[in-house]
C-alpha cells in the first residue's frame, strides 16, 4: 500500500468552557496516504475542523488534546518531542486552507506580502526570489493578471480569486498534504466548481494528498478516494468514495446522502435529517445517532464501536446493505470533472 503520511489515532479533544467540558473529538482515527484524497464529511459541529486543526497543531486554550496520538510519517507530533517537529512541518509539509478566504487573509497586507513571507521564512528566499516564486504560484492556481494581483489587498479581489490566493499560499513550500476546511462553502456554485476542479488538477499534477472537509457530500464526489463520515465527534463510517455513494451502510450517511441537494438544482425529494446533533457537553451513552435514527432498535442504547465490515468500517449494529440509489453517483459525478 501507499506510504502513510498522516495518522490520527484515537484522538480526543476537549474544550473547557463556562458551561462545562465540550468533548468535541471523541476517539477519532484517520489516516491519509501519499497522493490520497480523503473526504471528511459531517454536519456542522461534528468536530471536523477541530480534528484537522489538531493535526496542524492549532488547538489552543480553551481546547486541549487529552488523548490519542497524531503521527506524521510515523513520528508523533504530540508531547515534548513532537512539538518541534510539528512546528517544522506546519506550513511546509502540511498546509491548510480555510472556509472564508476574506477573513482568513490579513486585510492589511497585500496577497503578495502574505505569500512571500512564507517563502522568505521557510525557504530563506530573498525578496526578488520570493516575488518570482509567488508569481509562479499565482499562475499555477490560475489567478488572472497575476502580477497586478500580487500588489492587491484581499478586499480588492473577488471571493474566488481570494480562495485561489489562499491555495497558492498553502502550496508555497510544496507541501505533501493539504487540509482544505470547507474551501468552497462561502463561494457561489460556479466558483465552487472551479475551485474543486483546481484542487483536483493540483492533486494530480503535484501528487498532493488532500483532506477535504465539507458538510456537503456533493463536494466529495469525484474528488475523494475515501470518505470518513463524522457525527458528534466520532467517525461513524469510513469507506471508499464509490462505496459511500453506492452502498451507504450507516443510517447517518444515508441521511446525509438524501439531504444532499442536486447541484443542477433539479431536486427530487431532498430529505433533511430530523432532530439535532448531540450535545457535546454530555458523555455519550449508546449510539450517538440513535435518537435521530429511523431504524433505531432497543440495542442501540448500548455502546457501539467502529467495526470492520467487508471493505469498510461502520459504527452501527444494524447497517444497511445493498445499493440505495443507482443514479446518485451520476448526479454528482460532474463536479470537478471537465
Amino acid at each position: 500500500m501507499t506510504q502513510k503520511l498522516l495518522e490520527i489515532d484515537n484522538l480526543e479533544v476537549h474544550f473547557t468552557t463556562r458551561r462545562g467540558v465540550v468533548r468535541a473529538v471523541r476517539g477519532v482515527s484517520l489516516s491519509v496516504g501519499k497522493g490520497e484524497t480523503l473526504g471528511l464529511v459531517g454536519e456542522s459541529g461534528s468536530g471536523k475542523s477541530v480534528t484537522s486543526q489538531a493535526a496542524m497543531g492549532l488547538v489552543h486554550i480553551p481546547g486541549e488534546i487529552v488523548g490519542g496520538d497524531i503521527r506524521w510519517k510515523g513520528q508523533s507530533l504530540l508531547g515534548p518531542e513532537g512539538h518541534p517537529l510539528s512546528r517544522r512541518i506546519r506550513g511546509r509539509e502540511m498546509a491548510m486552507i480555510f472556509q472564508d478566504a476574506m477573513t482568513s487573509l490579513n486585510p492589511l497586507f497585500t496577497c503578495g506580502q502574505q505569500i512571500t513571507e512564507v517563502l522568505r521564512y521557510h525557504r530563506k528566499m530573498n525578496k526578488a526570489q520570493a516575488q518570482a516564486r509567488a508569481l509562479e504560484l499565482f499562475e499555477l492556481v490560475g489567478i488572472s493578471a497575476p502580477l497586478e494581483r500580487l500588489n492587491q489587498y484581499p478586499f480588492e479581489m473577488s471571493g474566488g480569486m481570494r480562495q485561489r490566493g489562499m491555495i497558492a499560499m498553502a502550496l508555497a513550500c510544496e507541501p505533501e498534504l493539504l487540509i482544505a476546511d470547507e474551501p468552497t462553502t462561502a463561494l457561489d456554485v460556479t466558483i465552487q466548481a472551479q475551485i474543486l476542479e483546481l484542487l483536483q488538477d493540483l492533486q494530480k499534477r503535484l501528487d498532493l494528498s488532500i483532506i477535504m472537509i465539507t458538510h456537503d457530500l456533493g463536494v466529495v464526489a469525484g474528488l475523494c478516494d475515501r470518505v470518513a463520515v463524522m457525527y458528534g465527534g466520532q467517525i461513524v463510517e469510513e469507506a471508499s468514495a464509490d462505496e459511500i455513494f453506492s452502498h451507504p451502510a450507516h443510517p447517518y450517511t444515508m441521511g446525509l446522502l438524501r439531504s444532499t441537494p442536486r447541484i443542477d438544482g433539479k431536486d427530487d425529494r431532498m430529505v433533511s435529517i430530523a432532530g439535532s446533533p448531540p450535545d457535546l457537553l454530555q458523555a455519550q451513552q449508546g449510539c450517538a445517532f440513535a435518537s435521530r435514527c429511523p431504524s433505531r432498535k432497543a440495542e442501540c442504547s448500548r455502546d457501539v464501536q467502529l467495526k470492520e465490515m467487508a471493505s469498510r468500517q461502520v459504527a452501527c449494529r444494524f447497517p444497511f446493505s445493498g445499493p440505495w440509489s443507482r443514479d446518485f453517483k451520476e448526479r454528482t459525478d460532474h463536479i470537478g470533472t471537465r
Binding site: L58, F98, Y121
Partner: peptide
C-alpha cells in the same frame, strides 16, 4: 487570519 498565519508556520 491569525489561524492562517499559524497554519503557514
Amino acid at each position: 487570519y491569525v489561524k492562517t498565519a499559524e497554519a503557514k508556520g
